[in-house]
């Protein structure tokens, strides 16, 4: 009787886990579908502006030796392009955040599925961890878009920005690994029990 109850409980948990996994997967996939196209278009536009600036406008400005309002034309062109890039990137920033969240959700679901379980706390832990990692990559790539133009304004600006990004990334990556601490704990306990079992069998 008790065994039957236990089996029913396990099946119910598995069903709930499967349902939760499917819901989270659908939610993440929806987020990726909804904002994916918009983000790709905006990032495409940003890359086009970056290319046009790098290959046309900055070389043209470098040919102009006169100053405008006391500033070199190259610096002004660089600043204008940096502002244009900033506007494009920041208008889709929330979408980028949602997209990275969605991607992290999809990856978290696949990680959870690979380990055989998808429950709420594990899914959230994986999601937080992957979110941090993807976010660091996104910020670094965004920085690469701005780097050259910020350098035309003043060479110290990209350097300071990079140092700030490195400091932030160290904390973000540490937070990411902390998010999976409980999962790591679960696996190390399982591994320890497995090792003990093997040693006792020998």
């Amino acid at each position: 009787m008790a065994e039957g109850k236990e089996a029913t409980k396990t099946t119910t948990n598995q069903n709930e886990s499967k349902k939760f996994g499917a819901e989270m997967y659908a939610e993440s996939a929806r987020a990726v579908r909804e904002v994916g196209a918009r983000v790709i278009l905006s990032v495409g536009a940003a890359i086009l502006i970056w290319l046009a600036g790098k290959l046309i406008f900055v070389p043209l400005a470098q040919g102009v030796t006169d100053q405008l309002l006391g500033y070199p034309v190259t610096s002004i062109v660089g600043a204008v392009i940096a502002v244009a890039l900033a506007i494009i990137i920041f208008t889709v920033f929330i979408d980028i955040r949602r997209l990275t969240g969605g991607l992290a959700g999809l990856m978290a679901y696949h990680f959870g599925k690979a380990s055989g379980e998808v429950n709420r706390s594990e899914f959230n832990s994986y999601r937080t961890a992957l979110d941090g990692v993807i976010y660091v990559i996104v910020i670094s790539l965004t920085y690469l878009l701005f780097q050259d133009y910020l350098a035309t304004i003043h060479p110290a600006i990209p350097a300071i920005l990079l140092v700030l990004i490195v400091i932030w990334a160290i904390f973000a990556l540490y937070r990411s690994s902390r998010a999976v601490a409980t999962i790591i704990g679960k696996y190390t306990s399982k591994a320890a029990e497995e090792l003990e079992k093997q040693a006792k069998n020998q």
Binding site: A181, T182, I184, G185, T188, S189, A191, A192, E193, L195, E196, Q198, A199, K200
Partner: peptide, 15 residues
């Protein structure tokens, strides 16, 4: 040895 390993794994493994 196995028990010791299990104990250390539990105590230090995750951290």
């Amino acid at each position: 040895d196995a028990e010791n390993l299990k104990r250390v794994f539990h105590a230090e493994g995750a951290k």
